[in-house]
Amino acid sequence: MSGCLCLPCNKRPTPKAGSSAATKVDSLQKKPTQQPPPQPPSKNMDAVERLKSGFQKFKTDVYDKKPELFEPLKEGQAPTYMVFACSDSRCCPSVTLGLQPGEAFTVRNIASMIGPYDKTKYTGTGSAIEYAVCALKVSCIVVIGHSRCGGIKALLSMQDGSADNFHFVEDWVRICHPAKKKVHAECKMLPFDEQCSILERAAVNVSLDNLKTYPFVKEAVANGKLKLVGGHYDFVNGKFETWVSS
């Protein structure tokens, strides 16, 4: 059944041609009916309504205006990049890097970390990497750290032998314990915040090294079909830097 509810209406007499009333009716009929533009989302809006409003704005402002972008995506995807980024709400890679739908196969987690090849411990990460490299044939994997990262701060704050405060967080960030050891050894005289900033980049390098333990990644890199890139997004100062993993 259609969702349209049609109500009966009373017919009005048709004005005679040439009359001022007829001219007014013709003028009204020629004007196209326009829907009011969607209102921008409000922070005070109900959480579900915020999602609906946000999608409607996207559909009106982007999706409906760019059929040349979205039509091909209905048939499949062929992204250039695989992007690992932090789950931090301030660091959306599609926004900060201007990535369009279809450009990047993206994984976000605490501190954008990648564990080493392990068929039992890191299967979620491993399956995403395998699909991106073996099925989608991405040509570049980018791992992006960022300023004031809570995961990095947690890693640097952890004391050996102390009890964990979370069910999962501490065990996860221990992936980059080698980076923490390096920072402690080389930068222990620096203030804590400066150590965190250095560790943000060092942790990215550990994840890049861990990527090379995946046999299909190692093979693609050796054959020149895949590049591994590190990145750091400083949202405090509005800076973004990259480096290629050797």
Rank of each mutant, 00 (worst) to 15 (best):
M1S: 15
M1H: 15
S2P: 13
L7Y: 01
P8W: 09
C9M: 14
N10P: 04
T14I: 12
P15E: 03
P15W: 11
K16D: 09
A17R: 15
G18M: 03
S19Q: 09
K24E: 14
K24T: 14
D26M: 13
P32D: 04
Q35G: 12
P36W: 10
P41F: 00
K43I: 00
K43Q: 06
A47T: 00
V48R: 00
V48N: 01
G54D: 05
Q56N: 14
K57S: 02
K57V: 13
F58A: 11
D61G: 05
D64N: 11
K65S: 09
P67S: 10
P67L: 05
E68A: 12
E71S: 15
E71F: 08
P72L: 08
L73Y: 11
Q77Y: 08
A78K: 15
T80K: 11
Y81N: 08
Y81G: 05
V83G: 01
V83H: 03
A85P: 03
A85D: 07
A85W: 03
C86N: 08
C91L: 00
L97C: 15
L97H: 14
L99F: 15
Q100K: 15
A104F: 04
A104V: 05
A104T: 04
T106Y: 06
I110T: 13
I110Q: 06
I110P: 04
A111Q: 07
P116D: 02
Y122T: 10
T123S: 14
G124S: 12
T125L: 07
S127P: 02
E130R: 12
A132Q: 02
A132K: 05
V133M: 03
V133K: 05
A135H: 13
L136I: 12
L136K: 02
V138T: 10
V138W: 07
S139G: 10
C140Y: 03
V143M: 02
V143R: 02
C149W: 06
G150M: 12
G150L: 10
G151S: 06
I152E: 05
I152H: 09
K153E: 14
Q159D: 00
Q159Y: 00
Q159I: 12
D160M: 00
G161L: 02
G161F: 04
G161N: 13
A163E: 03
N165L: 11
F166K: 13
F168C: 08
F168M: 10
V169W: 08
E170W: 11
D171G: 13
W172E: 07
V173M: 07
R174P: 00
I175A: 04
C176R: 04
C176W: 05
P178M: 09
K182T: 01
K182G: 01
V183R: 02
A185F: 08
E186A: 14
C187E: 06
M189G: 02
L190Y: 14
L190G: 03
P191A: 04
E194F: 05
Q195I: 07
C196G: 03
L199Q: 12
L199D: 07
N205M: 12
L208N: 07
L208W: 02
N210H: 13
N210S: 02
T213C: 10
K218V: 09
K218M: 06
E219L: 11
L226Y: 08
G231D: 03
Y233R: 09
D234H: 02
V236L: 13
V236D: 11
K239P: 00
F240T: 04
E241D: 09
T242R: 01
